[in-house]
Design a protein around this nucleic acid. Sequence first.
DNA 1: GCCAACGTTGGC
DNA 2: GCCAACGTTGGC
Length: 153
Amino acid sequence: MRYWLCKSEPDEFSIDDLAKKGSSFWDGIRNYQVRNMIRDSMKIGDKALFYHSNAGLDTGVVGEMEVVSEALPDPTQFDSKSHYYDAKSLPENPRWLGAEMKFTSRFSKVVRLAELKGESLLKASPLIKKGNRLSIIPLTAVQYKRLVHLGNK
DNA sequence: GCCAACGTTGGC
DNA sequence: GCCAACGTTGGC
């Protein structure tokens, strides 16, 4: 089983939105590196952390979810009204993928970015690297468990 | 709202 | 295949 961290701006889609819906298709991935990771490595049953980006002081990890589908074509790429529309992507050869994610739990507290930066386990992770472009970041089991621990302390 | 960092695009 | 211009991400 693999472990992931998925970023979303809470103004767009927050962990409360996910909790309300129960599960949701994780769309809007428009980075080839991320697409390749979810296509090649993400599997049903994998665990993922929900990260609120661009959230001021509350930027950080807020809860857990689970991957409940294979990587599937992201419908927003074919929707001309969508912010994520991609005119160059054809239905017979979809360029962008996403996956269905199921709510697991909300942390009792936000594990803030400032705290993440102080974690020696994350020293090498792109998560805390300036200028990193990945909206989905692979984590080790040890990193994942540490963050869950911090969030429920 | 600003801006640094970086990926993508397209002209050549 | 290079690289400048542009757009986006995301922290602050």
